[in-house]
C-alpha cells in the first residue's frame, strides 16, 4: 500500500490517480499516522505555502511520523514535498522546514518570471561517457533532457550537492530532483507530466 500524506495542501487526488494509473494496487490518501507507518511506500505531495504546510503537519502530529519513516521505505516528495525536506525557506520572510537535509529553499530572483510555470527539462546527473543516464531506480528509462511540468516560485539549494539527482535551467540552474538512498524528491509534478511522469511514478511503484 502506498500512503499519500494528506495535510490539506493541494491536489492529492491527482497524485493518487496518477499512481493508480502507473500500476499501484492500493493507494490511500491519509493523514493517519498509523496508515502512514503501515504503508510500504510514502508520498509527500503538496502545493502552496511552506509555513501553512508545516503548521498543518504539526497540527496533525505527522512530523515525527515522517522523520521516523522517511529512510525506512521508499519515499517520494513532490514540489512542496521536496522543499519541506530542507531546514529553512525564504518564503514569507523565513520559515522552517522538516530539516531532513541541510540547506535553504530560495526564491527565484526578480529578474526571472515567477512562478516558474510550464514544461522544462531535467539534466540527469549520473551519466556514462556516452551521455546516457546511468539511473536505475526511479529515474530508470527517463532520458536526459526529458520535459516535466513545473509550477513553483521557490527552489531548494542543498548544502550537500551529492544529493542532487537532476538539475534544471531557468536562468539559473537549480536542483530539480534530489535523492538519498530510498528517498527521492522532485520539484516538478510527475502526476502532471503525461507519459514520462507516469513512467517515473511506475518506477516508484515498482521499487522494492
Amino acid at each position: 500500500m502506498i500512503a499519500v500524506i494528506d495535510y490539506g495542501m493541494g491536489n492529492l487526488r491527482s497524485v493518487a490517480k496518477a499512481l493508480e494509473s502507473a500500476g499501484a494496487n492500493e493507494v490511500r490518501v491519509s493523514s493517519d499516522a498509523g496508515i502512514i507507518r503501515g504503508a510500504d511506500k510514502i508520498v509527500l505531495p503538496g502545493v502552496g505555502a511552506i509555513k501553512e504546510a508545516m503548521r498543518e503537519l504539526k497540527r496533525l502530529n505527522l512530523i515525527k511520523t515522517i522523520h521516523e519513516n522517511i529512510f525506512k521505505k521508499p519515499f517520494l516528495g513532490i514540489c512542496l514535498g521536496l522543499q519541506l525536506l530542507f531546514e529553512r525557506s525564504e518564503e514569507g520572510g523565513s520559515a522552517r522546514g522538516l530539516g531532513v537535509f541541510k540547506g535553504t529553499v530560495r526564491r527565484f530572483p526578480d529578474r526571472l518570471k515567477v512562478p516558474h510555470m510550464g514544461w522544462n527539462q531535467i539534466k540527469v546527473k549520473r551519466q556514462n561517457a556516452k551521455g546516457k543516464t546511468k539511473e536505475r531506480g526511479i529515474l530508470k528509462n527517463i532520458p536526459d533532457n526529458s520535459f516535466f511540468y513545473f509550477c513553483h516560485s521557490y527552489y531548494a539549494d542543498p548544502e550537500d550537492k551529492n544529493i542532487i539527482a537532476a538539475v534544471t535551467d531557468y536562468g539559473l540552474e537549480f536542483a530539480s530532483a534530489i535523492r538519498k538512498d530510498n528517498l527521492f524528491a522532485c520539484q516538478f509534478h510527475p502526476e502532471k507530466s503525461q507519459n514520462l511522469g507516469l513512467r517515473l511514478l511506475k518506477n516508484f511503484v515498482e521499487l522494492k
Binding site: N11, R13, S14, K17, Y149, S193, Q194
Partner: peptide, 11 residues
C-alpha cells in the same frame, strides 16, 4: 473535472 483528472495527467 473529477473524471478528467482521472484520465488525463496534465495541468
Amino acid at each position: 473535472v473529477r473524471r478528467t483528472a482521472e484520465n488525463v495527467f496534465m495541468p
